[in-house]
Design a binder for these strands. Structure first.
Lengths: 232, 232
DNA sequence: ACGATACAATATGTATACAGAAAGTATCCG
DNA sequence: CGGATACTTTCTGTATACATATTGTATCGT
């Protein structure tokens, strides 16, 4: 049925944007996507409106849609805002979670762990996204969850690199991250808001180092046979 | 031109929902609205998607759209979350505002004051909304502004009653509220984040008392000739 | 008379044709 | 040869007809 085609397309577009299968800033070709998902323009344009509302894409008047970019100014604000949102969400999740939601969280964590074990960076980062979104749902706060969702868009797109560890040290960090998820589940289960917040800060600090290193990597050696390039 | 019809409709729908011209929970009649704004169904449905993305309405599969309701559970969360969002927005606005934005804020405040002086509750609450949304823009934080916007939807719909003072005391509170806006402008202009936060808390406490009284008014007298109704 | 089912009416979702705007290209003039 | 303008092409926006789903109603059977 066509209903499935549409919602499948919507979900798939979300996944593709979050995993950078469609890169930040890319133009969306309406006609091509219609053909790809066997939809006519009307439902596809509706999907665009949805994605726009979720902050995944931007629609410009008479000029099509493009995937939200990740510019430097936004990254700065991202690192500034993340701890506050994440910690408050963690507190509320510990306080307000239902048992059904906790079971869902465990299931997501299991899938997340499998993806990290398999070394599939794309799937791992997407399941990490779902893990944190689920905690957001557990907070039962319609105001904060929209902020969390915006954060997770950029977080997930950045963290692609995190789950592609290039050495033993980085692999250990991924394992630590998975273990922290387990601890967060326990804290939320026992309604321990303080522990949930503390673990969330640890979790954030761990990933932050890695993300910052991605944004600002070690400089290339200045003394090579490549043309020299001095300072800014 | 049709472009104007569409964006005018979108803006007007926003205004009507925020001022409770269309009440919370009301069904939206697609055909009737199409006729009213001289639009065909396609752009009207696009407007619905936009409003849905902004949290003003909810769209249900094969079952039309309705204005977001304001249930008790949400109100509780509203009062819990508002101070955090408002204060953080105030801090960031003081830190990051541009002079152009400050000029806009002053213009909005002038219009707001005119509406309160004229005693027009509907226009006053809508312009109060624009005032606080403008401060949100000045924060330059794409994550927090979506949370702020969600808060302001409920805040504005609740505050209708605030700007319809039923006595000298309540009128004085409205005047105090207008004066606080002026002070907030000064704090933001001088990049004084601490003052902006402090004023925002005062402003919130003032309106909170009034809003809570609206949500939970003084009980009706129990001794009347109306049929008695004991306890819960 | 009550409930269930079939049918009709209405409302929602989709496809497509047409209209209008933006962008690219070619030609003309200086 | 360079720049501006007109034309063509392509993409975006809108209207409308059609398809599908839901809801209300009437009839039939028990």
């Amino acid at each position: 049925m066509s209903r499935d085609r549409k919602s499948e397309c919507l979900e798939d577009m979300r996944r593709r944007i979050l995993t950078r299968n469609i890169v930040p800033g890319a133009d969306l070709d309406e006609a091509a996507l219609c053909a790809e998902y066997s939809l006519s323009r009307t439902p596809m344009r509706e999907i665009f409106q949805r994605l726009n509302g979720e902050g995944l894409i931007q629609i410009e008047q008479n000029r099509g849609a493009k995937v939200s970019s990740m510019d430097l100014a936004t990254m700065r604000v991202f690192f500034q805002t993340a701890p506050m949102i994440y910690c408050n969400i963690a507190r509320l999740a510990a306080e307000n979670r239902t048992t059904a939601q906790l079971a869902d969280l465990r299931a997501i964590q299991q899938e997340f762990r499998a993806a990290t074990d398999a070394g599939d960076a794309e799937v791992a980062s997407f399941r990490n996204h779902r893990f944190h979104e689920q905690i957001g749902l557990m907070a039962h706060n319609p105001y904060l969850i929209v902020a969390l969702r915006r954060m997770l868009i950029d977080h997930t797109r950045l963290s692609q690199i995190f789950y592609r560890p290039s050495g033993d040290d980085e692999a250990a960090r991924v394992q630590a991250s998975v273990a922290q998820h387990d601890q967060m589940i326990e804290a939320i289960e026992s309604h321990d808001a303080e522990a949930a917040i503390s673990l969330t800060m640890d979790h954030w600090n761990l990933t932050r180092d890695r993300l910052e290193r991605y944004v600002m990597p070690d400089p290339l050696p200045t003394e090579t046979h490549a043309p020299e390039f001095q300072g800014a």
